Amino acid sequence: MSFFSRVFSYVFNELLVEGLANSKTFQRFAVRTDAALKEAKTSGKLKDLSEATSNPGEAAKRVSEYMRTLMEDGKEVIEEVAKKNK
C-alpha cells in the first residue's frame, strides 16, 4: 500500500509542478508575491518574526489579508490549469 501511495504522490506532484511551471498566471502571481515581499522587507513592514509576535492581532490581520489575496490568485491558477488539462 505504501508503494502505491508513493507512486501516486510522485505522479501527482510531477503533474502539478509541470502545470504550475507552464502557467502564465502562476508565474505572474509568483513575481508579484516576490516583489511584494521585497518591498515589505525594505519598507520595514515585514519585520523579524520575533517582533511580529509582539502584536498578534496585527499579525493575524496581515495574514488574513495575504491569504485572501493568495486564494484569489490561486483560483485563477487552478482554473487555467484545469482549462489546459481538458
Rank of each mutant, 00 (worst) to 15 (best):
M1A: 13
M1W: 06
M1D: 09
M1C: 08
S2Y: 07
F3A: 12
F3Y: 12
F3T: 10
R6I: 03
R6N: 07
R6P: 00
V7D: 00
V7L: 13
V7I: 11
F8I: 13
Y10A: 15
V11Y: 06
V11R: 05
N13C: 08
N13I: 09
E14G: 07
E14L: 15
L15H: 11
V17P: 01
V17R: 14
V17H: 08
E18D: 13
S23A: 01
K24I: 10
F26V: 01
F26G: 06
Q27Y: 03
R28W: 08
R28C: 09
A30W: 01
A30E: 02
A30Y: 03
V31D: 10
V31R: 12
R32N: 12
R32L: 10
T33Q: 11
T33V: 10
D34T: 13
A36P: 02
K38N: 13
K38D: 12
K38F: 11
A40T: 00
A40W: 01
A40L: 03
K41P: 05
T42E: 14
K45L: 09
K45Q: 12
K45D: 11
L46G: 03
K47P: 01
K47M: 04
K47R: 07
D48Y: 08
L49M: 13
L49P: 11
L49G: 07
S50K: 09
S50V: 05
S50Y: 04
S50N: 07
S50F: 07
E51V: 04
A52H: 01
A52Q: 11
A52T: 09
A52W: 02
N55C: 01
N55T: 01
P56D: 00
A59F: 06
A59L: 15
A59E: 03
R62N: 15
R62E: 15
R62F: 08
Y66K: 10
M67F: 08
R68C: 04
T69H: 12
T69V: 09
L70P: 00
E72N: 11
E72Q: 15
E72T: 15
D73G: 09
G74I: 00
K75N: 05
E76K: 15
E76Y: 03
V77D: 02
I78D: 04
E79A: 08
E79I: 03
E79R: 08
E80K: 02
E80F: 02
A82F: 05
A82C: 01
A82K: 13
K83R: 09
K84G: 02
N85V: 15
K86F: 07
